[in-house]
Design a protein around this nucleic acid. Structure first.
Lengths: 225, 225
DNA sequence: ATAAATCCTGACCATATGGTTAGCATAGAG
DNA sequence: CTCTATGCTAACCATATGGTCAGGATTTAT
């Protein structure tokens, strides 16, 4: 009923696994279609028929590969959780804060551009009250945050960055970056842009890096905006 | 099909209006119930029966007051748009940037605490691609942002704040504050708190104000965190 | 070649969905 | 009191929904 199991996978190396189908397999096609559908409409709003249409397959085919809507949803959700915060995973006290934060911000924003559906699906799950991720939040995700917060605290104690609430700094980076996936229509409309292309990505990344580093009392390497 | 009409209401003074029922009326009850339902499940995922249950009314009663699901949704959405960015509305070039930004951040965060459903409903609409707000985004909301961005630019030209992309600064404030409504379960779980009460609100507001003002090259009035 | 396992699908089912209808209850106006 | 307008609701409807099933196609193993 819940994905605590996904926690175990977070730092796993990608290895051959019969459960993980090759990119071109039917199962993978369905998962991609399902991700888009669940991302747009949430679990309750998603329609199995639309998943089938998106995958260009008859509906019973979906049910052949995934027993139920719930199981399909969980399969999609697991895959998303796995690749969530990679760029901030290996950071330690010894790392350079400016470099580490910049890499984290840019990676999150790149994810928002390349796979906005993943971000939106996660957002839907949270808005809905995380019915399938409560266990994950309270165990491995909390541990991850506390662990990363500790590194930030060590940077603070070493005088490398300003005093800031570490957990809330992480939240701010998450929200500011994921915003460009979840609220993409809004951002593009208000910026008067047609699509979230590389120029927009670069401008946004530069802004966020500069602004957030300055918020931490850091100057970026050699950029101004 | 779209709420461009809401644009006209944004700066309207609250005046007696037969369309706006008294707080205790059946219609108001239904709107509150519907807001919660649409916020949690999105338009497609929302169920008229659940709206009825939340309002403790028979389902046909809902349809007596609102012709269709769509009309009910639009009615809820309109009410939300009206009170969205009030605290930043009256700000002008002459305003003190630190004070204005602080008031804006605190107001948005208070809204996130007092009416998280409103924020979540809006988030759902955006994630879904803003099918009912495209017109609003491209007209009055864009005008609002450009207008507010102009004020920020004037602050920059007057040397009152650092050089930052004004639109993206607004996005960052929106996302960082609304995060505590939309991702409330996540934030509370990771902060190890039971509810979004006043202490959490204060800590969060203080963090955001300090951090964002510093990002703008400003020091807060007399606070450290 | 043949058997076995896997993959696929048209037709179908029970139930849930948004919405309607026809009639009941109540309050205010004359 | 009577008439009317409004608020309300049990019973109902057409359609859409998640899910099943029996059988056909295709691949793999022997």
């Amino acid at each position: 009923m819940d994905i605590t199991s996904a926690s175990r996978m977070i730092h796993m190396v990608n290895q051959p696994n019969p459960e993980v189908p090759a990119p071109s397999s039917t199962k993978a096609h369905i998962l991609i279609a399902a991700k888009a559908e669940f991302a747009q409409y949430g679990f309750e709003g998603a329609r199995m028929q639309r998943v089938a249409d998106r995958a260009a397959l008859p509906k019973p085919n979906i049910h052949y590969h995934f027993k139920s809507k719930q199981q399909l949803y969980l399969a999609v959700l697991e895959r998303i959780i796995e690749s969530w915060n990679l760029a901030f995973d290996q950071v330690s006290e010894a790392s350079d804060p400016a470099q580490a934060l910049e890499a984290f911000i840019r990676q999150k924003l790149k994810q928002a551009q390349q796979d906005p559906a993943a971000s939106r699906l996660f957002a839907n799950e949270m808005i809905q009250g995380a019915p399938n991720l409560k266990g994950y939040l309270n165990t491995s995700m909390r541990a991850w945050v506390q662990d990363r917060a500790l590194v930030i605290k060590q940077w603070m104690q070493a005088g490398k960055i300003e005093q800031v609430d570490p957990e809330r700094l992480i939240f701010l980076i998450w929200s500011a970056t994921q915003h460009y996936a979840d609220f993409q229509v809004q951002a593009l409309s208000l910026l008067n842009r047609a699509e979230f292309d590389d120029p927009v990505l670069t401008e946004t990344a530069d802004f966020l890096v500069t602004f957030i580093l300055r918020g931490c009392g850091l100057a970026p390497a050699s950029r101004t905006i």
